[in-house]
């Protein structure tokens, strides 16, 4: 076992991990942050996306021990300080960007990473950026709409589908 220390959602945390402990397991089992979902565990679906040093990463495909010293943000870190939903989360609720909600944590984290890089993306840019996030419920249209709305763009002309 090796000791790792990270900053997770602003707090310094430490834990003992095996070499093979995935970041997703460290977050969910070690820190009880179960908002990060594991869908495929094979780096295909994007449900497990978190931010590592500000960048979107699939937490099922990173070893916790490799990220000693990193700063990690999970879906639990996306709400406002008063506990209300953050901008991207609120946009997903307002525009029905989720149904079962399983893909949503990864979608929100990927969308937030996109908006940090590109504050006013086009629809095509949103679709390209979310290629690694799979949703089996919504058909994507409302997710795209929610991300565009979260960027402050007018989405009233985009029909709900």
């Amino acid at each position: 076992m090796t000791k790792v220390t990270m900053t997770v959602n602003g707090a310094t945390v430490s834990g003992e991990v095996e070499g093979r402990t995935l970041l997703s397991s460290f977050l969910r089992e070690g820190l009880a942050l179960t908002g990060t979902h594991v869908g495929c565990d094979t780096s295909q679906c994007g449900a497990c996306v978190v931010h590592v040093d500000g960048k979107a990463v699939k937490s099922c495909t990173a070893f916790a021990v490799d990220l000693d010293g990193a700063s990690v943000t999970t879906i639990e870190g996306m709400a406002n300080a008063d506990g209300s939903l953050g901008v991207v989360q609120q946009a997903f609720q307002d525009h029905h960007g989720l149904q079962c909600g399983f893909c949503t944590p990864g979608m929100v984290m990927s969308a937030a990473a996109l908006l940090a890089e590109n504050s006013k993306p086009t629809e095509a840019e949103v679709r390209h950026y979310l290629e690694g996030n799979i949703c089996r419920c919504t058909g994507y249209h409302n997710i795209i709409k929610a991300v565009l709305a979260a960027s402050g763009q007018d989405v009233s002309g985009i029909a709900a589908e």
Binding site: G46, V52, A56, V57, K58, S110, L114, Y129, G132
Partner: peptide, 9 residues
């Protein structure tokens, strides 16, 4: 290549 998360690692 792949998607943004794959490209970041």
């Amino acid at each position: 290549i792949g998607d943004p998360a794959v490209r970041n690692r």
